[in-house]
Amino acid sequence: MKPPSYLVAILVVGFCFALRIPLEADPVSHILVQLPLLAWSGVLITPNGTGRRSEWNRGGVATLLVAFFTIIFWMLPRSIDAVLSSPTMELAKFITLPFGVGAPLAIGWARAHPLLRGIIKAEVVSMLGVLAFLYIHAPVRICNAYLVSDQHRLGYGFLFLALGLSVFWIAPLFIVHTKRAVMPTKTPATA
């Protein structure tokens, strides 16, 4: 039996909270594991079709903008440094990532025009590329709480993520094509 998704969300947030000290000791696991997991928990608690008819959120634009600005805030190196020295900021992170990134992203994405989705995907990949370049080559320490060598590893993390997402988003274009070719024969055993 599949567990209800809110239960998974609670487990995910619990995991991020219980292991916050080891997760945050390394910027790679802090930024590329903990933050995305917290955002994902927000996706999990958003029921399908939430706000589907709202006139205020036509095309999902308003909610996607909420997610955009919340992400931008957490991309600031000083926000990440502040989390490590201020419990208030830590709490803000645990609240704003599920409710300010995950949930609005899920609501907005469901209503976004395919063209807008494509633009967002392209933006995400290119932004990760820029971050990778910046973190690998910056001549200064970007976070006071992390080492320069950690900063470099995070840069490579961004790079691999950009490459991974590119493959992940481009590969289905080919797979869907072959599936369509197979469908008319109606032989589920070969699917």
């Binding site: 205020w56 308003a62 903008l65 909420v66 600005f69 600031l76 190196p77 000083r78 976070c143 006071n144």
Partner: peptide, 25 residues
Amino acid sequence: ASLAVLIAGSVLFFKATDGLQALTA
């Protein structure tokens, strides 16, 4: 709605960076 989010988000970002002057701690 989008305009409201855009304005609020920009104000927040402006405040969070001391008027775009400080991105790092």
